[in-house]
Design a protein around this nucleic acid. Structure first.
Lengths: 334, 334
DNA sequence: GCCAATAATGTAAACGTTTACATTGTGAGC
DNA sequence: GCTCACAATGTAAACGTTTACATTATTGGC
């Protein structure tokens, strides 16, 4: 049986209250006593029982983490940041992945409440109509949104709209004018929507007409829309993808259609997953500081008072240059 | 304040014991009563307090999950399997990543003990000398190793040695004789070692002399050893990599050296990460059922009695054919 | 119609902490 | 030397469950 505070107290010749204080409010106990307790605790390999502590103090020192999936490296990278930050703060994590499934998202709240998390960092498909977010708000549980960007919510994200807009300008500077965008499902994902907005604004700012997004409904989607886009006579010479996984798929689609990247088609991804830089050709991508997003989210959540919309943090994005983008050449024009 | 069992009991006109039973041993309470309690509980949005339950029953319904990193998709895929299986069993997870750092591995045990996990599923660098594994054994904590393969430990894995051996044969059948292997750090990782053994055995079985492994010490390693290997006059025509991330890097190295894959060099990875199939060229890889490994590990752990070495499970691997392997041609010979 | 077995519920004592409050000892200020 | 403040510690009551044990119907066998 594992050792309890009583045995430490006895061996150290003090009451259990003093042992408890030695751990939680060290200044409240005499340094000699503290030292003695520390020694006994070490000798007995005493680890305070978290459940008892939580039960009595009503502080679980646990936060919920709800992400769509860990299979997308963006979220894996983010998760590592979250885990590291919360570990440093002595907080444990209750992870939950929704797999973009509304039913699972709905079930998350019970899972989290039951484990009495003190707060939640989460990414939802759409902040405007997320059942989970509604429940969290209703339960008055402190939370921070990651990646989602919403005026009336505390968020940690990059300015996705501006980021995509910049990349449009970048491509335009390289001579591209027929620039298209591939996204996930627009009405499911607010992020995809905001990224597309950046594209549209960027195009208009340059006096160009934005094209409709080539939407690919699901994660392992067919690439019909993209195929159609690239089959046109006057096909685009540059393609911005709303995430890196889509960009990888676009790379493959182009190869299948015998379109050379980047000579005939430039591709820009979004997310800046580490693996992108290792690919051949290496992916040009609007990179987000994923681990930092997770870390900041946790820090904001644990900062003290409940995070408010005005506490939202916008982190810096950067265009990570790779080998999938080239200046427009004569070949680019079909 | 969240609602407690007392309020449910009062509203349902029963004692708290009955409410408790209604949740934990439904058969022990009358169906009418059970129904009434269920209704009240729903109305009051009652969720039993896990800490109190754990404290009293000494069952935390929580398992520890220790993996090297989630940045390698192998482990992310595995983690999803773990999460799903434990969620279904009503178990929460305490995740911990070691980042291949011994100090972090050492700290894991305290982290887990403090949260009173009932068991652990884990992957260690080397099962033969892992401080964490030693501590877990010492604490008599039930555990299951994932990916690690060890006679005297309960493990869930594929037969890596056989898998690599088969891939050697496969390449040989395609005409390759100069087959090399790239690995991570051999004396750090027992998995890399076992995979290399499979290579060596495979070569000898074919009457060929195994080459020394091109070792790449760390995750973001330099590719010096690989470069040297490929710079030789009679360079290999096929390369087996001990994991997919290495294979991706090898792909890049080859491109840098203007060696065409697969015409001049065939590449086989190990792990079967989902992304590999999306790459261009798509990665030929010895694929493991990663989610299944995680899932089986959890199921074994929660099966009842403490898992024993003889409970170890070997899952099926498969050579996932991709575009990085071709039959040996005249060009293959330098 | 009585007894024993069984089903359904209640009572109350844990589980291992934290923490308000009480107690003691010590030195400073007068 | 008497108070007062303060530091250090102790006492004991929670926190919200589970569960051994006790109690009270209910049923069936005789």
């Amino acid at each position: 049986m594992s050792t309890s505070i009583h045995q430490v107290a006895e061996r150290a010749g003090v009451s259990i209250a003093t042992v408890s204080r030695a751990f939680n409010t060290p200044d409240a106990v005499h340094s000699d006593t503290r030292e003695r307790i520390a020694q006994v605790a070490r000798a007995l390999r005493y680890a305070p029982n978290r459940s008892a502590s939580t039960l009595r103090s009503r502080r679980s020192r646990t936060i919920g983490v709800v992400l769509p999936t860990l299979l997308n490296p963006v979220f894996a990278e983010c998760f590592e940041g979250i885990a590291q930050a919360s570990c440093e703060a002595g907080y444990a994590i209750v992870p939950y992945t929704t797999e973009y499934d509304l039913e699972r998202e709905r079930r998350a709240i019970a899972w989290l409440r039951e484990r009495s998390v003190e707060g939640v960092v989460l990414t939802v498909a759409n902040a405007a109509n997320s059942p989970l977010l509604a429940e969290i708000t209703r339960a008055k549980l402190p939370y921070v949104l990651l990646y989602n960007r919403h005026q009336e919510r505390p968020c940690v994200s990059v300015d996705q709209t501006a980021a995509v807009q910049e990349s449009v300008t970048y491509l335009h500077d390289l001579g591209h004018t027929r620039i298209a965008m591939a996204t996930g499902s627009l009405d499911t994902s607010d992020r995809a929507q905001q990224r597309y907005d950046g594209y549209a604004q960027g195009m208009r700012a340059l006096g160009l007409t934005p094209l409709a997004a080539a939407e690919q409904p699901f994660m392992h989607a067919n690439t019909d829309a993209l195929n159609a886009l690239l089959l046109q006579a006057k096909r685009p010479t540059a393609l911005i993808c709303s995430n890196d996984l889509l960009a990888v798929r676009a790379l493959r689609t182009a190869r299948t259609m015998e379109i050379d990247v980047p000579r005939e088609l430039s591709i820009v991804g979004f997310d800046g997953i580490a693996l992108g830089a290792e690919l051949t050709p290496s992916l040009t991508s609007i990179s987000q500081p994923n681990a930092e997003i997770g870390r900041s989210g946790v820090e904001l959540l644990l900062a003290g008072r409940t995070p408010k919309p005005r506490d939202s943090i916008t982190l810096a994005h950067a265009l990570r240059l790779g080998e999938t983008v080239a200046a427009r050449t004569s070949q680019s024009s079909a």
